[in-house]
Amino acid sequence: MLSYHIFEWILFFYIYCFLGWVFESTYVSIKSKRFVNRGFMKGPMIPIYGEGAIMMLVATTPVQGNLVLEFVMGMIGATLLEYVVGALMESVFKVKYWDYSNQHFHIKGYICLSSSICWGALSVLMAEVIHLPIERFVLSLDYTVLVVIALVVTTIFITDVVTSAKEAWNLRIVLVALTKARGEIAALQHQLELKKVQITEQFVDKKEELVEDWQAKKDFLLQSLKGNLQSAVDTENIKAKLDEELTKYQSLIEKFTSTSIWILKRNPGATSKKFYEALENVKEHIDFKRKNK
């Protein structure tokens, strides 16, 4: 099995990427009660399945025929791969495109026991059943045809990866900007509350200082009027800045949904620890637009 040449390995990878997409899209679509083009990429491929399949083939080949060892080796290899890819993607894009945090015995949401068991069972199934007809098909192809198919699909695959990575990076930029804008909004709202309290306190203090003397009354009224006018100006300035930040926040969400909406449509379960609120706001906006089409 390990004697395959490079173009055969490449074609195996793409076939399993496609089969993984079929499985994921079917499962998520049934669960969501609508079609979901699942995965990081726009095309019908999910690389983690292709990578996992290759890892399983490499891990199970030395122990082929021993079902227990096939299960264990495939489970370990695929689980390690899933952890590394998940951690790397979150580190780069600041978003988890799959998250097992709601499962028992998970590690940072990247892997969990039930997923690992599934990988082990799939390893046995693939080594003993699934891979055999796929192997026969690939090995039956004329070498020239094999090379042409591999090169054409590779070109499409790389283009899709670059486009999808750019889309994911745009989401990262938007989440950073939204989080910063939320901080500005919170700070301005706090300033507005402080200003309201300050105006109330100034009025109470000046009222208590009022004396019977007319001159004192006049000075008090003039001083109070100036102070109130200044406070009113300050308050209006804060309100204007707050409105500006709220408009900016909304325009950022609109900009993202008009250019990079598909990355979240393909990954409805995506989460982000660092940018949780911003990501949820974007998801809510996408949901709202979908329901009001």
Rank of each mutant, 00 (worst) to 15 (best):
F93Y: 10
T79R: 08
C112E: 01
D99V: 04
L69D: 04
F71G: 01
N102E: 07
D99R: 12
G77R: 01
Q103P: 03
L67I: 09
Q103H: 04
Y83L: 14
C112M: 05
K94M: 07
N102A: 02
I111C: 10
L88N: 11
V72S: 03
G77E: 08
E90C: 12
F93S: 04
H106G: 09
A78C: 13
Y110C: 01
Y100F: 14
N102G: 06
L113M: 13
V85M: 14
S101C: 14
L80Y: 02
K96D: 08
G109L: 05
L80V: 09
M73H: 11
F105A: 09
L80D: 01
G77L: 03
Y100R: 07
Y110H: 13
I111E: 07
I111F: 03
I107N: 00
M89C: 09
E70W: 05
I76A: 10
S91G: 14
V92I: 15
S101D: 12
F71S: 02
V72N: 06
W98H: 12
F105C: 07
M75D: 10
T79P: 01
A87M: 12
C112W: 00
N102M: 11
L88R: 13
K108D: 10
H104R: 10
S114G: 10
T79E: 02
K96P: 07
N102Q: 12
E82V: 03
L81W: 01
Y110K: 10
E90T: 12
K108I: 00
G86I: 01
E90K: 14
E90I: 15
M75G: 13
D99G: 13
E70N: 13
I107Y: 14
G109Y: 06
M73L: 15
G77M: 13
N102C: 03
I76P: 00
L81E: 00
W98Q: 06
F93H: 08
L67K: 01
S91F: 04
T79W: 08
